[in-house]
Design a protein around this nucleic acid. Sequence first.
RNA 1: GCCCCCAUCGUCUAGUCUGGCCUAGGACACAGGCUUUUCAAGUCUGCGACACGGGUUCAAAUCCCGUUGGGGGUACCA
Length: 476
Amino acid sequence: MTVRVRVAPSPTGDPHVGTAYVALFNRTWARRNGGQFLLRIEDTDRVRSNAESEKMIFESLRWLGLTWDEGPDIGGPCGPYRQSERVAIYLEHAKSLVASGAAYYCTCTAERLEGVRKAQDAAKLSPRYDRRCRDLPASEVQKQIDAGAKWVIRMKVPAEGECRFRDVVRGEVVFAWDQIDDQVLLKSDGWPTYHLANVVDDRLMGITHVIRAEEWISSTPKHIRLYEAFGWTPPVWCHVPLLRNKDRSKISKRKNPTSLNWYRDQGYLPEAMVNFLALMGFSMPGGVEVFGPADMDREFSIEKINAGGPVFDLQKLDWMNGQYLRKLSPDELATRLGPFGAAGHDAATVRRIVPLIQDRLRVLSDWTELTAFFFGDLAAPDPALLAGKKQTPAQVRDLLSRARPVLAAAEWTDAALEASLREVAAAAGVKPGDLFMPLRVAVTGRTNTPPLTATLEVLGRDRSLARVDAALACLA
RNA sequence: GCCCCCAUCGUCUAGUCUGGCCUAGGACACAGGCUUUUCAAGUCUGCGACACGGGUUCAAAUCCCGUUGGGGGUACCA
C-alpha cells in the first residue's frame, strides 16, 4: 500500500508556522516511502475562513519548498481538495450514519444547550450534551423537524467501554467512552464539523497515516468511532508535539511570531527555516544539525519524532539562518538581498558590498542598517564618537590630517590602503587601531563596520575624502 | 473540575524500545581565551541536566508505581 499523507490547514488568518511544521513531517514521510503528500483546505468554518488566507498558505508553503502532490490549486485524482466544495459528500455520509443508527438528528437549541451546560457546571459535572434527542423516539424528533425546528446530526458514542488505539509516537492510548461527547457531525447550516469532514476526506483520499498536531489526540476516539461506523479501517495515528512559546504554552502570536509571512519578511532563508523546524522533534544520526531535505528524506521516520513539546527558540533559528547565509555564494546572496533593499541600488556596487557583510548578516533585512553608509550622504560626524574614550579631539585631528594626503595619493585598493594607513600610524607613533577607529567613524559614522580598508575601497576616493574633510571640520 | 499527553543542561536534543560501553554526548545561548583595525565570522576552554519518591534488578537516565510539574482537550472552531 502506498503511503498517502496530508496537511489540512484551515484558511483563517496568517499562514501558521505550525502548519509548516506538520507539513514538513508529512511531506518527508511521503517522500521517504515514495508516497504522496496532499494539501487539503479545511474551510468548513464559514465565518472565519477566507480566500486570502488560503492563498497565503499556498505561497508560504511553496516559499519553504514544502510542495504537494495533490491539492486545491493543482488538482489530483481525489479532488476537490477544498472542503467547501465537498459539502454534498458530507451530508450524504452523515445521513448514512443516521440510517445505520450510528448518528441521530438533534433539535436542541443553542439556548437549551447553554442551560444544560450551566446546570452541569453548577453540579460540578463535565460539560457534555445530555443526549436528550438521542433518547427521544425518532418520530418525536422528526415531528419537531417537520414543524420547522433547526436540526443538526450528532454521532452516537458508545455509553460504556473504552477506546484504545496505537499512536506511533506515544504508544497505546486509552479513553473511556463515557468521557466522549455526542459530537455534532453536521451543523444546522448543513455543513460538516471538522470531525466528520476530516474522517470522510481522509478515507476518500486514501490517507494511510494521519500525522497531525497533538491537540487532536483527545478527539481521536470520535474519529475512530466514525471509521467503525462507516465500516472503514482507520489510518495509522501519529500525533506530533505542539510547538511551544518560551513559557511552554502552545505557540501563539501574542508570545512568539507565528506567521510564516513574518519570517519571510524578516529575511529568514526558507532552507534555514525548514532545517530549524526539522530540529524540533527530530534529530539526525551523529548529531548533525545542519542538513537539507534530501538528508532528512533519507533518515526520517515518524517513530523517531520526540513526544515532548519543543520551545521555539528564535536564537537558535538566528544561528541556523547564519549557517545558511554564509554558505550562499556572493552572487546568490546579492540576489536574495534584492527584495530587502539591495534591488534599489547599482548591482555592481551591491555585489562588491555583499562579501563585506555576509558574515555580519543575521537576517536579510539587516541589509539596510548594515549598509546605509555606503549610500547617500552621511550626517555630520559626532566629535565625541570620533575621538572615542581614549583620544582627545586634537589627537584625532592630527591623525586624520596625516591620513588625508595619503588617502588622496594612495592606490585605491584594499591592500594598498591598508599598507599606507599602517605606515601613517607608525609614523605618528600610534597603534593601527588608533588611526583606524577615528577614520572608520569619519567615513561610516559608526564604530562597527566591515574592515575599514575594504570599506574605503568600495566607498571610493572622492566620497571618502569628503567625509574625512567633514570630520576634520567638526574637530576644528 | 474531568480526560488525555509529556518530563535529560536555560533552550533544541543523543542515550530510553533492546537495563551495564553514561563519572550522561552534541548544538544554541552564556562566560572567558585566541585571532584581530572595530563589529562579526572562525576557533579553543569553561559553565550547565537524568523533576522527586518508592520499587524490580548484581546493575536503572533507561523497566514498573506514585507524586510533582508542564501541556493539550473539554464548541453547531479547526
